[in-house]
Amino acid sequence: MKNKKLNLVLLGLALVAPFALYPVFLMKVLCFALFACAFNLLLGYAGLLSFGHAVFLGTGSYVTGYLMLTYSITPEIGILAGVGASALLGLVYGKLAVKREGIYFAMVTLALAQLAFFFYLQAPFTGGEDGLQGVPRGELFGFIDLNNNLTMYYFVLAVFLFGFLLIQRTIHSPFGQVMKAIRENEPRAISLGYKVNQYKLLAFVLSATLAGLAGSTKALVFQLSSLTDVHWFMSGEVVLMTLLGGMGTLWGPVLGAGTIVSMQNFLASSPLANYIHVVMGVVFILCVLTFRNGMVGELQKLIRKNF
């Protein structure tokens, strides 16, 4: 009951936020929040650390960007295509990655992502170092003009809510329970008769698909698809967002994404602009050493202890 009220308040805040804050900033937060939530589904609930998740963000971004630039299609078709491409890539990469466990899984995903990075760098349709610029936002369903930032914001909010609710539903489903069981004790899950690798693969594909959704949406928001989206640094960034916010919590990645994006915006206009990577490295180390449950995780611990 209490949670429902809280959710309604947050939704209300999200609806009026663009009147108080810069809509493009909010859209950036929402895109990264969705990306981090998708990543958290894999790390926080299935216990799989993918260190190449940017590849799915970037694939969604490139496919949507390319189709929107080349053909006169509506944005929802562009997004669907981008999401489909990410899902397919997620299936292929997932099948390979689940063959190894633990830190090998992280290394395999990182290497596979680098493979895709070089592909996008050389492929003729990605614009190489320049990326795809001036991606048109188009008209949603053919009649809602997305060039208005406020309209675009509500569209992005709807996309985010769709992704977020899907993740919430997944976590609380029987499938989600099995995922958590695998995270906690894989041999036991196997002995109970679960085909662990298939569950892992499904979690991987779902996570890749939603990461692709974030990427496709991001391409429309910034009207740009570039190598930044597929770079290993982006993969590290989403790990940090999830870790800082609290992995394995529903709201953690959202809070983490909001914090990191705000921090980057703040740093960009401060004398520390050149130190963004250094600052993120420091935050990484502090998180790991002192703050492993993340903001939401620590808050939950505090509430449990004191109330």
């Binding site: 790990v239 990484f284 790991v288």
Partner: peptide
């Protein structure tokens, strides 16, 4: 996994 992330943080700082 935490030590992996920790050493990743060290790498970010040095490279930055």
């Amino acid at each position: 996994l935490y030590s992996l992330l920790l050493t990743f943080g060290i790498a970010l700082i040095l490279q930055g």
